[in-house]
Design a protein around this nucleic acid. Structure first.
Lengths: 223, 223
DNA sequence: GGAATAGTGTCTGTCAGACAGTATTGG
DNA sequence: CCAATACTGTCTGACAGACACTATTCC
């Protein structure tokens, strides 16, 4: 009995917020299959250089998006089967990464940002992978600090609330939002730093407390 | 440059509730590495016969546990890397399955049930995989109907509440529990069927409504 | 002073949990 | 009638959201 070789890859759903809309970063494929098509950044697992699949995903982000330290990178799910890739039976470990739009500016040109609510036809099962990522992000945003990773530091609480509202697609109560953020105990005010410039009262600037830099803070009852 | 072959496997964390404790089904390995050791049921992905990794997991359940129709089977996470398997760089797609203890009776002898809170040393990273599965199940039990898959139908509400309490490890309020179960709208009373035998008022028996047979019902605010 | 936005004190409706009562069986 | 458990009606404290007020800036 011959053992068929299985294709092992990683795909990264790199999400950011631009102009109030959640967008996914796509790259133009330079190889077959689907050469020239827009697709998720991904690639083969390199057994020689990657210690695990998460390292493969970080390498993909470095090579294809020029991102050195991924602020937030989480395993999403694994997509597998005989028909998803024309080359044969494949396993794609999908990861979800969140970055502030400012961080992607450096990779302009290599990446194309597409609103997740208006995706073009995509190769493989990339549409399904993106949908799963968006669903996960929206779900986790309801009860965790996940969206802070879409905000460049330092930021104000009204800015952070706008990010939450953009991700969740619904307006939030200001008082409740501030209560919850306070409960999460994940932010600290930057002493003396205020957002000035507007013709109105300046807002306090905040940053993420170091322990929550790469992880999440969870809330018992949502928001 | 030579491409190293990557080992593709699936592992199944088969959980059940026995004597009020959450237990995982382990099998004695019949091959190297770790032959004779207790480990999670698992095996290679068979590209020729499995349409995807979930089918591989279902096949493993069938071959190693004698389970034909897995009542609940969900992808957990993927564990990968160079060091987790002595044979080389490996990818293990882990699945979590829930069954009532009664269903496992038919597979007695092949499976050994071990309480998840008193696990022996296990090969590979199986301890880590089991811990992830238990954490996921406990977490999801807080706001979904997941534990019904640990209950053989038909069951009474007090029985179901006991299952929730065993999984979550804390007592629940009876009134709130019944309100929530009612909100989930996932159960229907079996007409005229009552649990008799005790020297007390008999309890109404319930079954899962067909649409929720293999999926979950989610609650907005937990429990 | 006015416009605009940041931030806060207080009220209220809702809902989860507690309590205690009724219901229904076997002995 | 008593013990035991199933089930239900009602009260109450806590909390999310609404409202309105104060604070601070630029013009």
């Amino acid at each position: 009995m011959t053992e068929t070789r299985i294709i092992c890859t990683v795909d990264v759903v790199l999400l950011t917020l631009e102009q109030g809309a959640l967008k996914v970063a796509l790259v133009r494929r330079d190889r077959e299959p689907f050469a020239q098509a827009l697709a998720l950044p991904g690639g083969y697992v390199h057994a020689q250089e990657d210690v695990d699949a998460q390292a493969s995903a970080a390498r993909v982000l470095r090579e294809k998006a020029g991102l050195e330290g991924p602020p937030y990178l989480e395993q999403l799910a694994t997509f597998s089967g005989a028909v998803r890739d024309p080359r044969g039976w494949s396993v794609a470990v999908a990861y979800c990464a969140l970055v502030p739009a400012e961080v992607l500016a450096q990779a302009a040109g290599r990446l194309q940002l597409v609103p997740v609510d208006g995706l073009p036809p995509l190769p493989f099962d990339h549409r399904q992978i993106i949908d799963a990522a968006v669903q996960r992000v929206r779900s986790k945003s309801q009860y965790s600090s996940l969206p802070v990773h879409l905000c460049a530091e330092p930021f104000t609480l009204p800015q952070l609330q706008a990010v939450y509202e953009a991700v969740l697609g619904e307006p939030l109560n200001k008082v409740s939002f501030r209560r919850k953020v306070d409960e999460l105990a994940m932010l600290e005010p930057v002493p003396g730093a205020l957002q000035t410039g507007g013709a109105h009262r300046p807002a306090q600037l905040y940053r993420v407390r170091p322990p929550y830099r790469r992880s999440l803070s969870l809330s018992a009852r949502g928001l």
